[in-house]
Amino acid sequence: TYYTVKSGDTANKIAAQYGVSVANLRSWNGISGDLIFVGQKLIVKKG
């Protein structure tokens, strides 16, 4: 599943929404920190 980042989103918020850990969200998308951008497409695997 892909999720498009919206204004006000955070890695924590997206992870919680899908029931996954922030560490997994980072791993699936090659993100090292919490910096995400509006319009960015993230791979999300439901927990």
Rank of each mutant, 00 (worst) to 15 (best):
D9F: 01
Q17K: 13
S7Q: 14
I31N: 05
A11C: 14
S21E: 08
S21W: 03
K13Q: 11
G33Q: 08
G30I: 06
G19N: 10
G39L: 03
Y18N: 08
Q40K: 05
V5E: 02
I43H: 05
L35C: 14
K46Y: 13
L42Q: 01
T10S: 08
L25D: 01
G39W: 04
T1F: 14
S32I: 15
G8I: 03
K46Q: 14
A15T: 03
I14P: 00
Y2Q: 07
K6D: 05
A11N: 04
R26E: 15
L35H: 12
A23V: 10
N29I: 02
K46R: 12
D9K: 00
Y3I: 08
F37T: 11
V20D: 02
K13M: 12
F37C: 10
I36A: 03
N24P: 00
A16W: 09
G39N: 06
K45T: 11
T1G: 10
V5T: 05
G30F: 09
F37L: 09
S7L: 14
V38T: 08
G30Y: 08
D9P: 00
V44T: 05
K6Q: 13
L42W: 01
T4Q: 08
V38I: 11
A16Y: 09
V44W: 02
Q40C: 05
Y18G: 02
A15P: 00
G8Y: 05
N29R: 00
V5H: 02
N29L: 03
G19Y: 06
V44L: 07
L42K: 01
S7M: 14
S27E: 15
G33Y: 06
G39C: 04
R26H: 09
D9A: 00
T1K: 11
G8F: 05
Q17D: 11
S21F: 04
K46C: 15
R26F: 14
Y2D: 06
Y18K: 04
V5G: 03
G19T: 05
I43Q: 08
V44S: 01
A15Y: 03
A15W: 02
V22N: 04
V22F: 04
Y2N: 05
S21M: 06
T4L: 08
I36C: 04
D34T: 08
G30P: 06
A11M: 15
G47C: 13
V22K: 05
V38K: 06
Y18C: 10
K13T: 14
A11H: 07
S7A: 15
G30R: 08
G39V: 02
G47T: 12
I36Y: 05
N12E: 15
V20P: 01
I31P: 04
T10W: 03
F37P: 08
V20I: 15
W28H: 02
L42S: 01
Q40S: 07
T4P: 03
Y18L: 12
V22I: 12
G30M: 09
I36W: 06
L35Y: 12
A15R: 02
V44C: 02
T4C: 11
Q40R: 06
I31A: 05
R26S: 09
V44M: 05
S7W: 13
A16C: 12
T4H: 08
I36F: 09
L25Q: 00
A15E: 03
G30A: 09
K45A: 13
A23I: 09
Y18H: 13
T10K: 04
A15S: 07
Y2F: 11
I43R: 08
W28C: 04
